[in-house]
Design a binder for these strands. Structure first.
Lengths: 256, 256
DNA sequence: GAGTGGATTTCGCAT
DNA sequence: ATGCGAAGTCCACTC
């Protein structure tokens, strides 16, 4: 049940100031719809002239301002920031400061439609499947997803330029460096793969294959791959998930 | 003034269903604090077990769910998505669908602390300074920020691999490719610069200098820069902004 | 629609 | 702290 005291409608500055101060101190999850003007100064600087927006101030100091449309917040401050409120008479100044890097966000509030503060009980567990890690896992369990006769040697093999997603040996005993991409692979992915192959060649020597494993390639990636004598094997994250389901039940979660 | 009808507290599913349907249709800015469970299916899949969260449903179809902490939303759907509500008896199902790529977000709502819907009048103007474009602008107005005797030829010069931030000639008449980074430049930036220099060499021929202009370099970027015989000139975005302020007043906005 | 690069990217992980 | 790569990245802009 929502407590009446949690929500206040059309407060004046004095009332709002007290409400905000109290609930910032109590580390509540605070939201409000306000007519405001916003200034940001930090890694960049921005200014937003007056209009109505939603703000969110979280118990961990995260602060987010949303406009009428769009996925992204127009202004924000990440977790670890500190909020304070001052009644300036003609407006309420909500200041959110991030210590390092030093950044300041100032919200000049001219009127308040409503503000609310909640406890927000949330012990829920978030789980996600279908990322690059899952492809890696699937290939480890079923290397033929990439190539028959492949044997996995190591995941996340460390090299000078970085970590190799999958290191394997093919049926002819040649080392195979595998670079995974969940989405269509671009030139960057090819360059990455090339770096790993070269590094391993310097380290170990001999002929080393490089295979880019992804659902597809951009044209430039295609060209560069050919130029650098690297290979490509198509593989989608969906197929990997199927394998995971077969092989280990994939108890992470099931469709509800 | 906030209209009483804009906010409803502790509604039952029937009341909430009607409220949401009506306000989705009227393209209002809708928010709510709900006890819910969330399932996402699309480019990946995710599941979030029960707990209290804030949701935002915007007039353009953007949908955002925030947990108690953190800057980022736990689940979302971008602008252009479509929301619908069904009363399932034991829960309210809020379904937000994105057509392309095909993605579905399902919020099973078990209880509602409050929901609200607003018009959100916002004609404010957002302006930002201090991005890479501003560095470009400043160097165009004051090339000595990079090097004395430099003359700017072209911004965003098109080459095969992409656009060169700044193309210039030095005092000895040699072409200079400038790659800008607002933050400390990494290996990627060096590779980018190298590509542009090489492409221009193939296209035009002759000796061509490449200068990475950024506030700093990562160690790997440093090494690679030396290997590839490219140059570095330190420059911060702040210094660029000072030049812009001097040279053209920078009327974008002033500190309040 | 695909492709490329920037972002106050954020976030996680390892050095 | 720095560095490096992933992200359901999103977004703008070009071809």
């Amino acid at each position: 049940m929502a407590d009446r005291k949690e929500i206040i409608v059309d407060p004046d500055f004095k009332e709002a100031e007290q409400f905000l101060r109290k609930n910032i101190m109590k580390r509540k999850f605070i939201i409000g719809i306000v007519d405001c003007e916003i200034r940001y100064e930090g890694r960049s600087s921005s200014k937003l002239t007056r209009g109505e927006r939603l703000f969110i101030l979280k118990p961990d100091g995260a602060f987010i301002v949303h406009r009428r449309t769009g996925y992204e917040p127009v202004n924000w401050q990440p977790s670890g920031s500190f909020a304070s409120v001052i009644n300036k008479g003609d407006h309420l100044l909500l200041k959110v400061v991030r210590p390092r890097p030093s950044e300041v966000l100032e919200v000049k509030i001219y009127s308040i439609k409503f503000i609310a503060a909640f406890e927000l009980h949330d012990t829920g567990v978030f789980s996600m499947i279908g990322d690059e890690k899952d492809m890696q896992e699937a290939i480890k369990l079923e290397p033929s997803l990439v190539e028959n006769g492949l044997k996995i040697i190591e995941l996340e093999r460390k090299t000078k330029p970085g970590f190799i997603d999958v290191l394997a040996v093919d049926k002819n005993g040649r080392l195979v460096v595998i670079e995974l991409k969940k989405n269509r692979a671009d030139e960057q992915a090819v360059i990455q793969l090339k770096k790993y192959v070269d590094s391993l060649k310097r380290e170990i020597g001999g002929e080393i294959r490089g295979i880019l494993v992804a659902p597809g390639l951009t044209r430039r990636a295609q060209r560069m791959l050919a130029t650098l004598k690297l290979e490509f094997h198509p593989l989608s994250v969906e197929k990997c998930l199927n394998v995971l389901r077969e092989k280990k039940g994939l108890v992470k979660f099931l469709p509800s």
